[in-house]
Nucleic acid binder design. Structure first.
Length: 804
RNA sequence: GCGGCUAUGGCGAAAUUGGCAGACGCGACGGGUUUAGGUCCCGUUGGGGAACCAUGCAGGUUCAAAUCCUGUUAGCCGCACCA
C-alpha cells in the first residue's frame, strides 16, 4: 500500500517539529559558516517570486553547509529606516511606524512559507532604537576620528524626494529611488570621508571571492588614476595655475588650458574686457541640471582673457572656462591637447584654437587632422628635445624629467567622492550632534544614546532643505554637553544605508546593550562566508559596508577588515517581456498562491530549476508541474520500496556513488538548476530499475533523501522518518563518494573519421593505444575506404582517423 | 562614446571546460489505465527521403570548436566629459 502524498500535512508537521526542536544549534565543536541574505526593506506589501528565489538559494546553501558539519549563522532582519519605507508610508497615508511594522509582519509570514532555516532569535530591525543606538554610536566614533565632518557646498538634490543624495544614489543624472531629475542645492551637509579609504577599498578587492563584474564596478567607481600636477605661470602675474593630467608626454601639444566654471579661480582670472561674459557663463552653468549637463553634446565655453606660459617652450597659452571640466576632480583645471583628446579636439574646433599633433603613428608629420589621434603608441613629433622618442618610452621618462625641472609632481586621483551622509527627511536615525554657539559641533554623550527619533504627526518632507524634525522646538533646543549653554540639535537624519552598512555584525549579538557587538562573538562568527543578493547594490551598500568594516577594524573593535568573503549575485526574475516585477507595472507574481497549490517544496525546487541561479529569467509557471511530478514520483518510489527489503546489488552501489558525485560536484559549482536535473535523471533510472527488482534498497533511498534534503526539507524529513529514523535528516553527514567504487572497467568512447562520429565502442579502461585503434578500426571498417593519414587516440576520450 | 555580459530545438535550458550537441523539464503528438475529465503509466519529439546539415552571422586555428582567436550583428547591463 502506498502512503499518499499530502504536502500540506507534511509541511505543517515539520514546521512544528523544527520549532520545537531546532536543527541548527550552536555547538563549539563545529566550524561556523555565516550565510547571509541581503535583508529586505519593508516598503511594499509583500515579496514576489524573485525575492523568494534569493532566499531559497541561500537556504539551500545553508542547509548544505549544515549537513557538511557546520554551525550555520543564517539570520534575517529588516532594513526598515530610509527613503523606500518612508515614501511607501507617504503614498499610503499612514505613519511609517505603522506601515513599517505591518509590512514586516506580512513579509515575515511569506518568508516563513519558505521553510527556511532562519534563526529568528537573531532578528534585527534598523529602525529599532536598540539597534540604531549603535548606528549613532558608530557615527560618533567617526566624528571623533574626523571622518564625519560638516560642509556647505552644492550637493545633489532630489526635488521630488526633497532631500540631498550621495553620488552613488544618482543614476544617469536622476534619483535612484524616484527617477526625478537631480538638481544642485547649496546645503550644509554631513559628510563621511570615505575617500580616505579609497586605496584600501580598491586594493582589498583582490582578497575577495566576488563576481568579477562587481569588483570591476567598484574599481571603476573608485576610479584611481596616476598622473601629474603641472604648474603653469600666468602671464603678467606672479601666480601659477596647476593642472592635473595623465598624459604628460603630450605636454608640447598643449594649446590652451580650461578651468572649471565652479573653480574658485574662475571668476578671478577674467580680464576687465572679459569679466561680463565670464560671469554670465558661470551663472548659466549653475542653472543647468545634471541631466542637461550630461546630455549637452555641444561644447560651450568662454575665454578669460588671460594667458598661461608653457613651461617648456614659453609659448602663451590662452586660458578658457568650460563646463566639461569638473571642479572636483584633479585640480579643476586641465591642459588641453586637442590633437590627442576627443573632447579637447571638439573644443578647439568650435573655438578655433590651434591643434598641434605631437604623436604620429609613423613619426611623420600629418598636419590636417579630422579627429584626435588617441592611440597610445607612436613616435613623438613637434616636441623639441623629445622628438623621435617612442611614446611608450617617453611616458616613463617624462614624469622624471618634469619633476627634476621642478614644475610638476606625480599625483594620484580618484573619482570617488566623500559620502553625502545627511538626509532632510524624517524616517531615519537622527544624527547625534549638537551645535553649540561656543563649542561648535559636539557629539551627543554616548550614555544618552539612543537619541530617539521624535514621534511626530507631520513627517512629510519640507521644501526648505530642513528635515521635518527641525520644526519641533522642544526637541531641537538642548544644552551643550560641554559648556551647558543653549544649543541646538542637528535635525538631519542618516541615509537609508547607515543601518545596512553594519547590520550583519549585529545579528550575532543583537541583544547586547553595552556594546554594538561583543568583540568575542563578532570575531568568532564573522566575516560573512557567503553573501547572497541582487547586483543592484554593487557600488552602494557593498561599498559602504566595506568602508564601515574597515573603519571599525581601524578603531580596534573588530579583527577583520572585509565583511563579505564570498558574494553571489542571483539573477532577477522578471515578468512577461522581461519587465521588472513591481507594484507599479502590476506584474508582480506572489508566491502565496503557488505555495498553497503546489506546496513549499515544489515551489522551492521550481524556483531553482527555472534557470541558472545567476542568470535573469522571465517568470513562467510552465515547468512547475515537472518538479511537482518529480517529488511525487520519488515519494512513491520511496514508499513502495520501504518494506520490500531489497538488497543492494553492486550495480546499485555504483549508481549511489555516481549520484553522490554528480550532485556534490554540481553543488560545489553552485549549479543548482542542474543539481535538480540530475536528481530527476537518477530518479528515472531508479524507477526503471525498481520495475525489475520490485523496489530499491533502503541505503540508496536514504542517500537520495539526504542529498535532496536541502532542496525539499519537509518531504525529505518525512521520508527519513518513514524509514524509521528518529533524528532529523539534517543531522546526517552529507554523503561521500568513493572514486574506487565508481570506477568502471570499460568506457564507451566515440570513433570518428575527421571528427565526425561513426560509431561508439566499449573498450577496457587500461587498453593500449594500438588496441584501442584496432577496435576502433574494426567498428568502422566499412567507412575506412580512403587513405588514413593520421590516427588519434586520447585515452578514455576518443578515437579519430584522419582520412584524405 | 568607453567597458562588460549574453546569443544553442516550439519553450526553460544541458554539455565533465577543446572530444558523441540538445541531458533534465515544459509543451506537442500517439498509446494505455479510467464510465468520462483530471491524475498516473508507456512511447515519439532539432531539420532532412538519405548521405548529411545544424549552437546569431563571416572567417581562422585544430585530428577535433557551442567552447579558443579575428571581424561582425543584435540584445541586456555598467560608466558617462574623471583630463
Amino acid at each position: 500500500m502506498t502512503i499518499p502524498f499530502n504536502h500540506k500535512a507534511i509541511e505543517k508537521k515539520w514546521r512544528e517539529n523544527w520549532k520545537k526542536k531546532p536543527i541548527n544549534v550552536y555547538d563549539e565543536k563545529k566550524q561556523k559558516y555565516y550565510c547571509l541574505d541581503m535583508f529586505p526593506y519593508p516598503s511594499s506589501n509583500g515579496l514576489h517570486v524573485g525575492h523568494w528565489r534569493g532566499y531559497v538559494i541561500s537556504d539551500v546553501w545553508s542547509r548544505y553547509k549544515l549537513m557538511q558539519g557546520h554551525y550555520v549563522i543564517h539570520p534575517m532582519g529588516w532594513d526598515a529606516f530610509g527613503l523606500p519605507a518612508e515614501n511607501y508610508a507617504i503614498k499610503m497615508g499612514v505613519h511609517p511606524v505603522k506601515s513599517t511594522s505591518e509590512n514586516i509582519a506580512n513579509i515575515k509570514r511569506q518568508i516563513n512559507d519558505i521553510g527556511a532555516l532562519y534563526d529568528w532569535n537573531m532578528e534585527v530591525n534598523t529602525s529599532d532604537p536598540q539597534f540604531y543606538k549603535w548606528t549613532q554610536w558608530i557615527f560618533i566614533q567617526m566624528f571623533r576620528k574626523g571622518l564625519a565632518y560638516e560642509k556647505e557646498f552644492p550637493i545633489n538634490w532630489c526635488p521630488s524626494c526633497k532631500t540631498g543624495l550621495a553620488n552613488e544614489e544618482i543614476v544617469h543624472g536622476r534619483c535612484e529611488r524616484c527617477g526625478a531629475e537631480v538638481t544642485k542645492k547649496n546645503l550644509r551637509q554631513w559628510m563621511l570621508k570615505i575617500t580616505k579609504y579609497a586605496d584600501r577599498l580598491l586594493g582589498d578587492l583582490d582578497k575577495l571571492d566576488w563576481p568579477e563584474k562587481v569588483k570591476k564596478m567598484q574599481k571603476d567607481w573608485i576610479g584611481k588614476s596616476y598622473g601629474m600636477e603641472i604648474d603653469f605661470l600666468i602671464k603678467g602675474k606672479n601666480e601659477r595655475i596647476t593642472v592635473y593630467t595623465t598624459r604628460v608626454e603630450t605636454l608640447y601639444g598643449v594649446t590652451f588650458l580650461v578651468i572649471s566654471p565652479e573653480h574658485t579661480l574662475a571668476a578671478k582670472l577674467a580680464t576687465k574686457e572679459n569679466r561680463e561674459a565670464v560671469e554670465k557663463y558661470i551663472l548659466d552653468v549653475s542653472m543647468k541640471s545634471n541631466v542637461d549637463r550630461l546630455q549637452a553634446k555641444k561644447k560651450t565655453g568662454v575665454f578669460t582673457g588671460n594667458y598661461a606660459i608653457h613651461p617648456l617652450n614659453q609659448k602663451e597659452i590662452p586660458i578658457w572656462l568650460s563646463d566639461y571640466v569638473l571642479a572636483d576632480h584633479g585640480t579643476g583645471v586641465i591642459m588641453c591637447v586637442p590633437a590627442h583628446d576627443d573632447r579637447d579636439f571638439e573644443f578647439a574646433k568650435k573655438f578655433n584654437l590651434p591643434i598641434i599633433p605631437v604623436i604620429a603613428e609613423d613619426g611623420e608629420k600629418n598636419e590636417s587632422m579630422t579627429k584626435a589621434y588617441t592611440d597610445v603608441s607612436g613616435i613623438m613629433i613637434n616636441s623639441g628635445e623629445w622628438n623621435g622618442k617612442k611614446l611608450s618610452v617617453l611616458k616613463q621618462e617624462a614624469p622624471m624629467i618634469i619633476e627634476k625641472r621642478g614644475f610638476g609632481r606625480k599625483m594620484v586621483n580618484y573619482k570617488l567622492r566623500d559620502w553625502v551622509f545627511s538626509r532632510q527627511r524624517y524616517w531615519g536615525e537622527p544624527i547625534p550632534i549638537i551645535h553649540c554657539p561656543h563649542c561648535g559641533n559636539v557629539s551627543v554623550p554616548e550614555e544618552e544614546l539612543p537619541l530617539i527619533l521624535p514621534k511626530i504627526e507631520n513627517y512629510h518632507p519640507t521644501e526648505t532643505g530642513e528635515s521635518p524634525i527641525a520644526n519641533i522646538d522642544e526637541w531641537v533646543k538642548c544644552k551643550c554637553p560641554i559648556c551647558s549653554s543653549e544649543a541646538k540639535r542637528e535635525t538631519n537624519t542618516m541615509p537609508q544605508w547607515a543601518g545596512s552598512s553594519w547590520y550583519f555584525l549585529r545579528y550575532v549579538d543583537n541583544h547586547n546593550d553595552v556594546e554594538f557587538v561583543s568583540r568575542k562573538k563578532v570575531n568568532q562568527y564573522l566575516p560573512v562566508d557567503m553573501y547572497i543578493g541582487g547586483v543592484e547594490h554593487a557600488v552602494l551598500h557593498l561599498l559602504y559596508s566595506r568602508f564601515y568594516t574597515k573603519f571599525l577594524y581601524d578603531i580596534g573593535v573588530i579583527d577583520f577588515d572585509e565583511p563579505f568573503q564570498r558574494l553571489f549575485n542571483q539573477g532577477m526574475i522578471t515578468g512577461e517581456n522581461d519587465i521588472k516585477m513591481s507594484k507599479t507595472t502590476g506584474n508582480m507574481v506572489s508566491p502565496d498562491d503557488l505555495v498553497r497549490d503546489y506546496g513549499c517544496d515544489s515551489l522551492r525546487m521550481y524556483e531553482l530549476f527555472i534557470g541558472p541561479p545567476e542568470v535573469d529569467v522571465e517568470w513562467n509557471e510552465r515547468g512547475i508541474d515537472g518538479v511537482s511530478r518529480f517529488i511525487k514520483r520519488f515519494w512513491k518510489l520511496a514508499m513502495d520500496s520501504k518494506d520490500v527489503n531489497v538488497l543492494p546489488t553492486s550495480e546499485m552501489i555504483k549508481i549511489r556513488h555516481h549520484l553522490i558525485h554528480d550532485i556534490t560536484c554540481r553543488m560545489e559549482k553552485f549549479s543548482l538548476n542542474t543539481v535538480i536535473s540530475t536528481f530527476m535523471k537518477y530518479n528515472n533510472k531508479l524507477i526503471n530499475l525498481s520495475k525489475k527488482t520490485k523496489g530499491i534498497d533502503r541505503g540508496t533511498i536514504e542517500i537520495f533523501t539526504k542529498l535532496l534534503a536541502p532542496f525539499v526539507p519537509h518531504v525529505a524529513e518525512e521520508i527519513w522518518e518513514q524509514y524509521g529514523n528518529t533524528e532529523t535528516v539534517f543531522h546526517e553527514k552529507w554523503p561521500k563518494y568513493s572514486e574506487e567504487i565508481m570506477k568502471d572497467d570499460t568506457v564507451r568512447i566515440p570513433v570518428q573519421i575527421n571528427g565526425k562520429t561513426k560509431a561508439v565502442i566499449s573498450i577496457e579502461n587500461n587498453i593500449s593505444k594500438d588496441d584501442a585503434l584496432a577496435q576502433g578500426r574494426n567498428a568502422i571498417a566499412e567507412h575506412l575506404t580512403g587513405n588514413v593519414v593520421k590516427e588519434i587516440y586520447v585515452s578514455g576520450k576518443i578515437v579519430n582517423f584522419v582520412m584524405r
